[in-house]
Simulated scan of single mutants.
Amino acid sequence: MIRVLLADDEATVRAGVRAILSADPGIEVVAEAADGHEAVALARSHRPHVALLDIRMPRLDGLAAVAEIRRAVPRTAVAVLTTFGEDAYIARALADGASGFLLKSGDPHELIAGVRAIADGAAFLSPRVAQRVITELSGDRLARADRARRRVAALTGREREVLALVGAGLSNAEIARRLFLTEGTVKSYVSTILNRLDVRNRVQAAILAHEAGLADGR
């Protein structure tokens, strides 16, 4: 059972997200918070697998809560509930250890898939927001693409295959099945890739894969 903490200062949003997640018998919303301080406290007490945090919350905003939860409960993966108007916060959330970005008004199946992927250790970028994430971080996109390709060129062929699948949002288990490897081997590959690319987490690796053209097969 995937245990989820849901934090949003709007009760109607929490109710909607909770209803979607509750449709999956493998997901349980174990706690809800209306502000960032409460979210951190509940993360410490409930130790959920995944914390879904809105960005704009009173007392302690979602971005500060991301960083605090990652420090206090490192085994809890944190995903940001976002809207199209909040692109400016993406880089900071990534730097603070967010594992994904889920669109509040997105497809319910996508929300469930995102929670499952993040709980399984994968990065997840809502497809409708993925390009905006990349654009926010890109600056000079051609220059960044060139730098990304040079960084990725240092990887072995197998490491690039794994990175491409990380960029596609696959979990370790899914990558293992796709490449006919053990899950432990994939975990080792991912750890090596993060170290060699000097990125902090799978989301940053996934974005680098997109920038280098790996995730879309170029």
Score class of each variant (00 low, 15 high):
Val29Arg: 02
Val30Trp: 01
Ala31Trp: 03
Glu32Thr: 10
Glu32Phe: 03
Ala34Gly: 15
Asp35Trp: 06
His37Phe: 10
Ala41Asn: 11
Ala41Tyr: 01
Ala43Glu: 00
Arg44Glu: 15
Ser45Trp: 03
Arg47Phe: 08
Ala51His: 10
Leu52Cys: 11
Leu53Gln: 07
Leu53Ala: 02
Pro58Met: 07
Gly62Pro: 09
Leu63Cys: 11
Ala65Asn: 05
Val66Ala: 02
Ala67Lys: 14
Ala67Ile: 07
Ala72Glu: 15
Ala72Gln: 14
Val73His: 07
Pro74Gln: 01
Arg75Gln: 15
Thr76Ser: 10
Thr76Leu: 00
Val78Asn: 03
Thr83Glu: 08
Glu86Thr: 02
Asp87Asn: 11
Ile90Thr: 14
Ile90Trp: 06
Arg92Pro: 06
Ala93Lys: 08
Phe101Leu: 03
Leu103Ala: 12
Asp107Gly: 08
Asp107Lys: 11
Pro108Phe: 03
Glu110Met: 13
Glu110Ile: 14
Glu110Phe: 06
Val115Arg: 03
Ile118Tyr: 05
Ala119Thr: 04
Ala122Pro: 01
Ala122Ile: 07
Ala122Phe: 11
Thr135Ala: 15
Leu137His: 04
Ser138Phe: 08
Ser138Arg: 08
Gly139Gln: 07
Asp140Asn: 14
Leu142Lys: 13
Ala145His: 11
Asp146Val: 14
Ala148Met: 02
Val152Asp: 05
Val152Lys: 04
Leu155Cys: 09
Thr156Asn: 08
Glu159Thr: 10
Leu163Asp: 06
Val166Asn: 02
Ala168Cys: 13
